[in-house]
């Protein structure tokens, strides 16, 4: 078996309680995932499930309290700033909100040049690379001189992707990168992700709450529920015949453009929720918040 690009082993993230004697809250519990080279792992779950935290933990933005994160054979669970700088070449991020993910005070050129300069690229080379990147994400070359506010959400997300691609990383953590976009833009940006992957062989950890999006882009899918991975496997399998009741419910929650089938699904979803609640009660967990 070849070594995976990213391996997360029994990862735990716990935020200290805010204020005096507030209990600490465990956001991730014993989470384990793997991502191979050039692979997309879709991470799905409802908001608050901890999927975003997992992405942030990999990027060093959340405190790792137990377990390990192995990137390219190296433990980066507690990587310091200089290690992160080095890692930045291989590990990048695209965030959800295209309106806050770009520095509004900088031109697109400055935004794209920033990681290149930090990596020590000469100015001439950086210029050329910026043109190339803009071309790759389907933006006109004159975009470089403009400011983020002059672009639409989808275009901004393309800039964010270009920035993530600047250093030719091997893994990009995509934290709900299309959730803030309208449906047609979503489709085009997703296709861009896929096209880039086919061309560059980059791997994605693709975080989303939308099963349809996940199904479209992922090779494999991991389902997260209350800080734990409840189901993991082949994308086709997990999204069509889920084993875990939570995944089943998620699947049913995905919108379907057919009134009769939707009615049927709604009834099914209700039944599953009841079942799920019973299971929870039996296992001593709190009632499900739906």
């Amino acid at each position: 078996m070849t070594q995976p690009l990213l391996g997360v082993e029994r990862l735990g993230v716990t935020y200290p309680g805010r204020g005096f004697r507030r209990p600490a809250s465990a956001v991730l519990k014993e989470v384990s995932i793997e991502i191979a080279h050039g692979e997309t792992l879709g991470l799905v779950g409802e908001s608050g499930s901890g999927k975003t935290t997992l992405g942030r933990a990999i990027l060093g933005l959340a405190p790792v309290t137990s377990g390990r994160i192995i990137f390219d054979g190296e433990d980066i669970s507690h990587a310091g700033r200089s290690e992160r700088r080095r890692l930045a070449k291989d590990l990048q991020v695209v965030f959800q909100d295209p309106y806050t993910s770009l520095n509004p005070a900088m031109t697109i050129e400055s935004i794209l040049a920033e990681p290149l300069q930090a990596a020590g690229a000469p100015t001439q080379e950086a210029r050329a690379r910026i043109r190339e990147l803009l071309d790759q994400v389907g933006l006109p070359a004159d975009a470089a001189r403009r400011l983020p506010r002059e672009f639409s959400g989808g275009q901004r997300q393309r800039v964010a992707i270009a920035r993530a691609l600047a250093l030719s990383p091997r893994l990009i953590v995509c934290d709900e990168p299309v959730s803030a976009l309208d449906l047609s833009t979503q489709a085009r940006v997703l296709d861009l992700f896929i096209e880039i992957q086919e061309r560059t062989g980059v791997a994605y950890l693709f975080v989303s709450h939308d099963l349809a999006v996940i199904r479209h882009i992922s090779h494999r899918v991991a389902v997260m529920y209350r800080g734990e991975i409840v189901e993991q496997g082949d994308a086709e399998l997990v999204t069509s015949e889920p084993e875990h009741p939570y995944t089943q419910r998620l699947l049913l929650a995905a919108p379907v453009a057919h009134p009769v089938r939707q009615e049927k699904r709604r009834a099914e979803r209700f039944r599953l929720r009841e079942l799920h609640r019973e299971q929870n009660l039996q296992s001593g967990a709190l009632p499900a918040r739906v």
């Binding site: 700033r81 290690e83 890692l87 991020v93 965030f95 909100d97 806050t100 993910s101 520095n103 509004p104």
Partner: peptide, 26 residues
């Protein structure tokens, strides 16, 4: 709190760099 600051942090930029180059102007 903005995402672009997170992006910078994820790349290992120091607090000072983040503040002086990116945050103060905004």
């Amino acid at each position: 709190r903005l995402d672009f600051v997170r992006t910078l942090r994820s790349r290992g930029l120091s607090q000072r760099e983040v503040l002086t180059k990116h945050v103060m102007r905004n």
